[in-house]
Design a protein around this nucleic acid. Structure first.
Length: 514
RNA sequence: GGCGGCGUAGCUCAGUUGGUAAGAGCACACGGCUCAUAAUCGUGGGGUCGCGGGUUCGAGUCCCGCCGCCGCUACCA
């Protein structure tokens, strides 16, 4: 039964260009979204940029431009990067947009009206780069920030505080009633641990800067950047301005987020939603990090890789395949160029690409270039491949359903291998043209048809290409919504036969590790 | 300090509530095939499951200790 699926990524902070770590999260979200479209869910996929805060103001200053100019420029780099990688986001939300201002103000006003905000003062050592206060004992010598190792500054501010401490109980209850809300389970335990250990009220406004969203009832203040940023998830779906649209997508959301921001997403944000009188987000998917040499890849490290360049190098599909196949959502993984090329060669070139090539060639020589349909053996038996395909399709569905697309891909490749093995066993290139050769070729073509649909969330361009080479160009797209749904086309026997099969250039030319 | 995680074949990792000889992919070796992108198919070698104790008829799987690595630590995207 088709449902609704709203997918988000964290919105990225615009003090630098996108790197592979941000691309990883966005690619995962893209793949999940594409899968849900494929099974017929009504799907909405949003990413965007986070553009407020002192750090951005200073970045703009040091680059000699206005804050507005700076965020426009930097945000567009994200827009362009996702476009270059061929991602399928339906919307791109920026926190400097009017629609976001309105939603934040409506949302925060509701929390205020519900009595969960109060005025207090906050002072302490403040790291501008972190936009965070630190306890003195956490500082390095000479009062330096432990993250950036730069000197902190003593700030005193009158702030509005959110009474987070009042929500521990309700959060615990909610998570108790929704055991599947956080994936994977270890992250759920971590979030519960945070809640159990006691929550402190948090200051959510700043008066020291004006680059932010004004507090409606106290315009000297702007909202603290996190409090503004999290709201993007609902401002993107019309909170405060389009009630029907908001109701349609909320709370059927799947927030994808990094394990470093669990506190904000799994504690603050649900509490904020409760305080404002809306449901907490239904699903929080916590991903791991891409590591380089055992260290997190990130903008503060030197180990950045430009995802767009990498996509141009190996192809967007191959890059996405590597990211989704080699890294289980929820786990860290070691990123290497060699690993990427290894995956490319063994899975994409040798197994998938080569299967299509060899089948196309033999269809050309033994079936006059016209693809035969899958059919029964002369002895009346159905192909072993039919059985394998059915099992694999089920496994793929199940794997995506529990946020393990890497397992779905692994299963898909079992089917591809089985098709290669079946070809070896029958060796149609040795047979005279006829029913026996046609049968195995039809089976192989049918496998390729099914595979095209199954891989389309990760290899969308490749899926289309396979589709057209199988002669199916006239019959829609392998990625058409619902193709993997209950009324979909994944049952064995869908390849019609009688259509021209074209060989074409290698789908994935082998590459050497340089 | 506190909380949590990790350490399984050369590499990347699977291993449900402890029990049919410790697995997969890649890499490697041998053999087959030659339709295919020197691709593919089959077979095989290889692991004291970080270390040391303990519980048990039986532990990679539970308990204790140790070693190594890594996160989070309450206003960093």
């Amino acid at each position: 039964m088709p449902g609704r699926y709203y997918q988000t990524t964290p919105i990225y902070y615009v003090n630098d260009a996108p790197h592979l770590g941000t691309a990883y999260a966005t690619v995962c979200a893209d793949a999940l979204s594409r899968w849900h479209r494929l099974i017929g869910d009504e799907t909405w996929f949003v990413t965007g940029t986070d553009e407020h805060g002192l750090k951005i103001l200073r970045a703009a200053e040091s680059n000699g431009v206005s804050a507005r100019e700076w965020v426009d420029r930097t945000s567009s780099r994200f827009v362009e990067a996702w476009k270059a990688l061929g991602l399928s986001n339906d919307d791109f939300i920026r926190t400097t947009e009017e629609r976001h201002f309105r939603s934040v103000q409506t949302f925060m006003q509701a929390i205020y009206d519900n009595g969960h905000l109060y005025k207090g003062t906050y002072e302490g050592w403040y790291c501008v780069s972190c936009e965070a206060y630190y306890n003195e004992e956490d500082l390095l010598d000479h009062n330096r920030c432990p993250v950036h190792e730069k000197p902190v500054e003593w700030f005193t501010e009158e702030n509005w505080f959110f009474a987070l401490s009042k929500f521990g109980e309700r959060l615990s209850e909610w998570y108790g009633a929704h055991p599947g809300a956080i994936f994977p389970e270890t992250r759920r335990n971590e979030a519960l641990g945070i809640i159990r250990s006691g929550l402190k009220d948090i200051s959510i406004t700043r008066t020291s800067i004006s680059w932010g969203i004004p507090v409606p009832w106290d315009p000297e203040h702007v909202f603290y950047v996190w409090y503004d940023a999290l709201v993007n998830y609902i401002s993107a779906i019309g909170f405060g301005s389009d009630h029907d649209r908001f109701e349609k997508w909320w709370p059927a959301v799947h927030h994808l987020l990094g394990k470093d921001i669990i506190r904000f997403h799994c504690v603050w944000w649900p509490a904020m939603c409760m305080a404002a009188g809306i449901d907490p987000p239904a699903h929080l998917l916590v991903h791991g990090f891409l590591l380089v040499g055992g260290r997190k890849m990130g903008k503060t490290a030197f180990n950045q890789v430009d995802p767009v360049e990498l996509g141009e190098d190996v192809g967007n599909d191959a890059l996405r395949y590597y990211l989704v196949r080699d890294f289980a959502i929820g786990h860290d993984g070691e990123f290497t160029y060699e690993g990427l090329i290894e995956r490319y060669n063994s899975d994409l070139a040798n197994n998938l690409g080569n299967l299509l090539a060899r089948v196309a060639t033999v269809v050309g020589s033994k079936a006059a270039g016209i693809g035969p349909p899958p059919q029964r053996r002369p002895d009346g038996s159905a192909s072993r491949l039919a059985e394998t395909a059915a099992a694999v399709v089920g496994e793929v569905r199940e794997a995506w359903g529990r946020f393990a697309p890497h397992e779905g891909l692994e299963a898909t490749w079992r089917l591809i291998r089985a098709a290669n093995a079946e070809l070896e066993a029958v060796a149609p290139w040795k047979l005279d043209p006829g029913p026996e050769a046609d049968a195995v070729l039809g089976d192989a073509l049918e496998v390729l048809r099914i595979v095209a649909v199954l891989v389309s969330p990760v290899l969308p361009d490749t899926a289309e290409e396979i589709w057209s080479r199988l002669g199916l160009g006239g019959s829609g797209s392998p990625a058409a919504p619902g193709n993997a749904g209950p009324e979909g086309i994944l049952d064995w026997g869908g390849y019609p036969g009688g259509v021209p099969v074209t060989k074409g250039r290698p789908l994935f030319p082998r590459r050497s590790v340089e």
